[in-house]
Each structure stands twice: as C-alpha cells, then as structure tokens.
C-alpha cells in the first residue's frame, strides 16, 4: 500500500517534470528605452515582450486575413516607409475602396501614448486593433469571424502556441500579438537624436540650428521633445471640414471645452508622413508651415494657447523646414525588422 502510494506520487512528479521540459518557453526580449526618454506608458506586465510574440504580431500586421474579403491588411493603411501611415489619400481608404473619415496616423513610439485615435477615444493599445477589424470602411469583419479564420488556418495555431502557450486563438492573444509589434515601432535614430546624444561627427547646420530655436520658441509646447508630442489634445485652429464635420475630442467626452481638439501628432519622420492633419488637408510640409505662419485665424474660439499667426519671414520658414527634416529616421523607415516578413 505505502509503496504504491509513493510510486504513484513519484510517477506524477516525473510526468510533470517531463512535460515542463518539453514546453518551450518563448524568448523574452528587452524593450529598449532610448536614453533620457520618459518611462513608457505601456507596461509589458500582462503581455511580456517576446521574440515569438513580436514576429507573430508582425506577420498578422501584414496579413489581409484580418479583413472580411482578405484584401486589406493593417499595412494597407500603415506603410513602413512613410512612418506607418497611408500615402496619398487625405482620409484612409479601406475595403472595396470605401473611404474613412480620418487620415491614418503614424505608428511611431506608441509605447509612450496613453490614448489612441485623433480624438483619444481608445484608452489602451491592446484594444485599438478591434477598431480597424470591425470598421465598415476599414476591414469590415467581425472579431469572432477573424478568430474563426485564424483558428482554422494551417499556420497560426502553431505560432500562437509558441508565443502564448496555447494554440486556441482568442481575442486576447490576437490583440496582444498585434500590440507586441506596434508597440515595438520605436523611432529614435534621426539626425536630431544623434546631435542630442552628441554623437561624433554629427552636427546641425546653421540653418537647422536656427530652425530648432524657432521650433522651441513656437511649437515645442505642443510638439514636445523628445517624442515631439505632449500626447495631449489641442487645437491648432483648423476650421471644421464641412463634409466630415469632425468635432474631435468632444465626440468622446461631450465636454464643450474639448470641441475641435485633436490629439497632437508626433512630428518624427514628418518629411514622409504626408498628407498632414486629421483630415489630411495639407499635402506639403511647406503648406503646414505657411498655415502656422499666416493661415491661423486668431478669432477662432477653440484655438489653443499659445498659438497665433507667427508671421515667419522666408528665412525663418526655410530654417524651420530644415529642422523638421532632421527628424527623419531612415534606420526606422527601412528597418528590416519592421518590414513585410519574408
């Protein structure tokens, strides 16, 4: 009797050990916070950053399986070499060419954001991905249906098992995988960064230096360094588009003082993220600078401080533009780790 019990316990322990040995753990990788940057908002506590999870998220990001008719992937509206935004269109184009109502934002340094979308309506990066999947003018599918397709696929269950320990794909593991990819899109290697880090042989030209001064005096309150956004909401005085009638943050909070406020976008890689603003109304960076210089209507009631028409002269405009171009980070825009997985 007693030996049998002992033997039994031994067997159970041994079995446990063996199965433990066979279950390969995903490889934890570190999330690198650039020197002197603030602490990221996204905590990896419930979603540890792993190589398997990142690669799975990357594959999903580029896979049109997430749309109803398998024609649109996340990358259709978020292209790497434009800072992960749409090119050419003022508002995003989705399934069957349907038009959305807003310009797709860049996906850069999302780990430092606490709200998402132009109106900040999305409160966590992990739940953002449900929006494009279900939006009738984006991927127009149902989350249940996407999960069904993924669970029935010949490759995904195995990849989810490697990343999250279970081959049953759920909303939670799908969203966490997408998040591990998008949260890893960190741009911190522009000329501006190199100058700030005092890297050998990298210096601002006189023009860029003047541009930085103008920027710090007039723009940096909202487009705050080093993220080039304070990640809060403001109005730069743009008037409402008469067709889109977008009231911005007000649609979420119903607070009259939030009317016409939009999330301040980062200016990193701004050289390539055209068209600009929530409705993509400006095609060229020059147009934006001209707007801030002479286009602002100071009588607009929702205009945020300290904005006013800045009346830059031609040299100042050129200086400012040349500074903005130092925010281009080619190592980010062409990083093979973020590109279409081969």
């Amino acid at each position: 009797m007693k030996y049998r019990i002992l033997f039994f316990t031994f067997c159970i322990c041994a079995l446990g050990l063996i199965s433990f040995q066979f279950k390969s753990e995903p490889t934890i990788i570190e999330f690198n916070v650039p020197k002197k940057w603030p602490k990221p908002i996204y905590s990896f506590q419930n979603n540890p950053l792993t190589e398997e999870g990142f690669q799975l998220g990357r594959k999903l990001f580029y896979d049109p399986i997430l749309s109803r008719d398998s024609t649109i992937s996340c990358a259709s509206c978020h292209l790497q070499y434009t800072g992960f935004t749409h090119v050419d269109h003022n508002v995003s184009h989705g399934i069957e060419g349907r038009k959305g109502t807003r310009n797709s934002p860049v996906l850069i340094n999302l780990a430092w954001n606490s709200t998402f979308h132009w109106d900040g309506g999305v409160n966590h990066l992990e739940v953002q991905g449900i929006n494009p999947i279900q939006h009738p003018a984006e991927m127009d599918d149902k989350l249940e249906n996407v999960l069904k397709k993924l669970n029935a696929s010949s490759v995904y269950p195995d990849l989810f098992k490697k990343a999250f320990g279970s081959d049953k794909i759920t909303s939670s593991t799908l969203m966490k995988a997408l998040t591990l990819f998008t949260v890893s899109l960190v741009s911190s290697d522009s000329k501006y960064d190199k100058v700030m880090r005092k890297e050998k042989g990298v210096q601002f030209s006189e023009q860029e230096k003047n541009g930085l001064k103008i920027f710090r005096n007039n723009c940096a309150v909202c487009h705050k360094e080093p993220l080039f956004t304070s990640t809060t909401f403001a109005s730069n005085g743009l008037k409402m588009d008469s067709l889109l009638k977008d009231v911005g943050r007000y649609a979420i909070t119903h607070n009259p003082t939030d009317s016409m406020l939009f999330k301040i976008p980062t200016l990193r890689n701004v050289e390539f993220t055209f068209p600009y603003m929530h409705d993509g109304r400006y095609k060229k960076l020059k147009d934006v600078i001209n707007y801030y210089s002479d286009g602002i209507d100071p009588s607009v009631s929702y205009l945020s401080k300290p904005l006013k028409p800045f009346h830059f002269n031609d040299t100042e405009k050129k200086d400012l533009l040349s500074f903005l171009l130092t925010l281009t980070d080619k190592a980010f825009l062409y990083n093979p780790r973020y590109s279409f997985p081969k």
């Binding site: 979603n47 309506g121 409160n123 966590h124 990066l125 739940v127 909303s171 969203m175 966490k176």
Partner: peptide, 21 residues
C-alpha cells in the same frame, strides 16, 4: 482601462464599445 481581457470580459461578448473604449 486594463486593455484586452478574457472570459466574460472578452470584447466578442458584444458588451464593449471599441471607438470609445
């Protein structure tokens, strides 16, 4: 504000607003 959750709190239960989380 906890991000994506499982079980009864899974957004596929139809009790979640996505555009205004």
């Amino acid at each position: 504000v906890a991000g994506i959750l499982d079980g009864d709190l899974d957004p596929i239960k139809g009790m979640y607003w996505t555009w205004n989380s």
